[in-house]
Each structure stands twice: as C-alpha cells, then as structure tokens.
Design a protein around this nucleic acid. Structure first.
Lengths: 273, 273
DNA sequence: CGTCAAATTGATCGACTTCAATGCTCGTGG
DNA sequence: CCACGAGCATTGAAGTCGATCAATTTGACG
C-alpha cells in the first residue's frame, strides 16, 4: 500500500519535491536513500550505505540516457518516466529490445564490453539515479546488501529479454500483440496499478519493432482485437475488456485450429465481414 | 557409443585434470581456483577466495541442469560442454532463448523470482560449477573480485539475449540464419578457435526455434547459402567459404533492393533456377 | 491554423508456414 | 558386428498471412 502511494507521488510530482536534489546533474543528498528504498532495501541495510554517491539526472522525452557504442561509466536506475532500449543497425533500422519503467536497471549489458551495446531513450520526460562504476565496484563489505539489490534488478532485466523472445516466437501478429499486452498488464499489476486500463507510452512503431512486425500490422492487429471485443483502443489508451479472451489469444503458439478455450468470448479469428 | 565416450573424455580432460576434483557431485578442492581462472580472475585476487565453496556437477546430453519453474538454489557456470536455454509454453512449444558455452553463467535470471523462468538443457555431456546462493551472497569484502566477475558474466548473458533479438528482427529467413552464423563465428573467434569452421552442437529444430522460423525453413536457408557458395554445410559441420558475403547477408534489414556490397560473391537472392 | 509525425486503411505479391513424404544418422538391441 | 528403428534432416507443394507501397486521416504542437 505504502508502495503504491510512494509510487504515485513520485510519478505525479515528477520533479521530486526533495528540494536540494534538484541540482542540475548530481545532488547526492538523499538520493542514496531514495534509490535503496526504490530497489526494495530493508531499512537496516540503509544505514551503512547512507553515504553512497548517487547522482540524479533528468532526461527529456526523446533524448538518450546513453548512446549505443558510448563508453560505460555508470549504472542507471529509472526513478520516474520510462525508456525504450534499442539497438540500431547500420542501415538505421531501430530494434527495440525492451521497455524500462521505475526501479529497473539500465546499461547493465555494458559491464562486459565497457561500451554500451544498446541505447536507452526516454519515452517521456524521465529521471534516473546514476551509480558510477568506480564507486559501485569499490564499496567493500558495506556493499553486500546493495549487490543483492543490483543482482535482482539485473536478473529482472535478463528475464525481460526472455519476454521479448516469447513475443517474437508467436507466429500470428495478433498473438504477438496479445502477449505484449499481457506483459504490460502483468507489469501494471506488479506496480499496484490497474491491469485492465493503461496508457501506452511508446509509438506504434516502437511496438512494431518490439514485436518484430511492420507498424501497419500493429494497427491492424489492434483493430482485430478491438473488433472482437477483447480490448478497447483509443489511440494510446488501452482497456482490456475480456482478460480471459486476451489470455487465450496469447496462448496460441501454432495455428489456432483447435477450439480456443470455450470459456468467455469466442476467440475465433475469421473476421472477414 | 565409444565415439561419445572418447569425446567426453577429451572434453573433461580439457582443464589439466586436477585429480581429486573428479568427485561425483561436489569436490571443493581446487574447483574454486579453476572457476576463478575460467572467469578471468587476476592471480592476486584468487588467494582471498581460495576457500570458496564451489560444487562441480556433470550433466548428460539431453538432461536438464535445472527445470523451468524449479526453485533457484545456485548460480552455475559452464565448465565444459554446452547448453541451450529454453522456455516451454503450455502447449509444449519450446522456445530457445540462447546457447551457453564455457565460462557462461546459467540461471542468473532466477535471482529475481527465486524460481527459474527458463530451463538449461545440455546439448552434449557437460560439466558445470555451482555456487550456492547462500554462500554467494554471504562472502563479505572478500567477494568484491568475484562479484566483478559475476557481473561481467551476467552482463554478457544479457547482451546475448540482445543478439537473439537481432536475429529475430530480420525479415528474411536466410538473413536470420546468416546472423546466427555470424554470432557463432564471433564466439568461436573469442575463444581462439577458427571462426570459419565449426560444429553445430544443436539440432535444426533448436536453431529454428532460436531464429523464430519453422525448422524446414532452416534447412532451406542452409541450402540457399550453400548454393551461393557462402558456406559449406555437411550435416552439423559448417564451413564459412566467404565471410564477406555472409556478413553482407547478415546486414539486410529490409528488402535487399540496393546492391548488396559489390565486394566478393554477388549476394543476390533470386535463386529460382 | 498550419505543419509534421503518428496512425489507420487498402491492395498486391512474395515468402513462410504447414502438411506430407523420403533420405540420413546414430544409438540400441538382436 | 550388423541391422533396425527413432529421431533428425531434406525436399516438395499449396495456401495464407504479413511486408511493402500508397493514400488518407487523425492528432500533437507551435
């Protein structure tokens, strides 16, 4: 409960009200505490890390937190707003690897190569915590509890990229979209927000890239799901009308020749009126 | 049969057999040293971790190191052999998320959920180091150097899943296969082995799942690349004949309307003789 | 109000999935 | 040791879904 409240406050009052933290590029006042709380630290462990040098940084919508190929200097954690993680091919094609919300780690995949294999671009005005690698690697025994939190965040990031595979594994485009919406719904639930109604913060192109289809196909797939009454879509506003049907859609790995679970709305696909 | 045994022996003996370490399921003698060396530790840091409780475990071809959904108990590092990382859908469809070779970490994505979101299945008789989570999280300041190594391995695992997206992002099946082969080639080079000639340790089905296409399509794509003289394929034995052409193939993000790099073999696609 | 990007909708064609049948490898057992 | 069988791999044929090109509408922002 208090989690929810804090989350909402952070989101509503995006320029955080903690006064001195608003320094242009790096107040360290209570940032450490805020970061640790966000990552789920126990109060006990926070004392020993009170002096953790944490930078805060704001990123405007469309700007990159870091570019692909740039040198890795810090680990970042999303404080507010959201990001897309992308890789850009030589010909300019932008592949979206995932989306990151509050408390998620950014730039972890740069630790092994010392240069970022992917870029992080803000989908809306955002704010992040930064932990310089030098500092991060040099906190001796005090760092134990922080390490645990970072491991968890990194593990979560790894699992997220597994979700990407889940989505792209589906054959039919509507199934991919359905799985994507299920992922979003689950994430919303984890944050204590409504899993039935949410605002998409990314463009159709971003979704298309994430799904591995053309952006026109995303539009059409939204249309199909909407016509079937599974969801209601108004631009970037999405409402899940029939969660069971959406789930049934997301299941189909192969051709949906078998009857698609007789519960709830019939999820037949022939919609050529 | 005898073939397999000889192969296994050769592989197991790869690290100069440190004698007592061959205990069935858990000698801790020099395993710690071996693990640290494998992960690239500096000799200096190895002294303080000499007593690290490291288990060794052998996994036979086709067996699972851990199953999807099982409780996370340890971090594993591949000592010998190779694995595929898979997620299985309710309908039994097996999605391959990646392949792991020597020195790679397995099971890292279980840290956040405490249960494995993916399974690791040995592609051949294999051997791993195991680090129990209790032990891992409880090495105070001495763990600093180990943490650095584990972070690097985990970061590498995250980047690998980005490669998965790269592959599945391609529109044409031959491009996906070409990218996959480039990945393999790069990995071989990193290990100091020939980047032009290698043995595929996974089935065509596994490749197909990784690429996100039907396994028949993988066969056909191999055929196309072979007919063009880009590679030579004999069952699971692959030889890259024209690395530049393979690279050119791997580039194509969109339809190959522009001339595909006039160097080397012409990489046109119309092969309807 | 005017501009530009985002989003929707339509039409065409090619590539991939799917079904089906055969050849090949390799491990097991006769 | 050889022959058999089960999974792996290749090849063929047909139907379909989605990529692409193209045109229009909507929406956001100055």
């Amino acid at each position: 409960m208090s989690n929810v409240i804090r989350l909402v406050e952070a989101r509503m009052a995006m320029p955080p009200a903690s006064g001195r933290c608003n320094v242009r590029m790096g107040g360290e006042c209570n940032s450490a505490q805020e970061l640790l709380l966000m990552l789920g630290a126990e109060p006990l462990s926070m004392l020993e890390l009170a002096s953790l040098p944490v930078l805060t940084r704001r990123v405007r919508a469309g700007d990159a937190l870091f570019h692909e190929g740039s040198a890795a200097e810090a680990l970042h954690f999303v404080r507010a707003g959201s990001f897309k993680i992308v890789r850009t091919a030589e010909d300019g094609y932008e592949q979206v690897l995932g989306f990151a919300d509050r408390a998620e780690v950014l730039g972890f995949d740069a630790l092994c190569t010392a240069t970022h294999p992917s870029a992080a671009i803000a989908l809306e005005d955002a704010s992040v915590f930064g932990l310089h690698l030098r500092d991060f690697f040099e906190l001796g025994e005090h760092g134990a509890s922080l390490h645990r939190l970072v491991y968890r965040a990194a593990s979560s990031a790894l699992a997220s990229r597994g979700d990407l595979a889940d989505v792209m594994a589906a054959v039919a485009a509507e199934v991919r979209l359905a799985r994507f919406l299920m992922q979003l719904s689950r994430r919303m639930a984890e944050r204590g927000q409504s899993p039935r109604r949410f605002h998409l913060r990314m463009t159709r192109r971003d979704i298309a890239s994430y799904l591995g289809v053309a952006h026109e196909t995303v539009s059409r797939s939204f249309g199909v799901l909407a016509r079937l009454g599974v969801v209601r879509v108004d631009n970037r506003e999405v409402e899940v009308m029939d969660m069971a049907a959406l789930h049934a859609f997301a299941m189909n790995t192969r051709r949906p020749f078998d009857e698609p679970d007789p519960s709830s709305v019939s999820a037949r696909r022939s919609m050529r009126a």
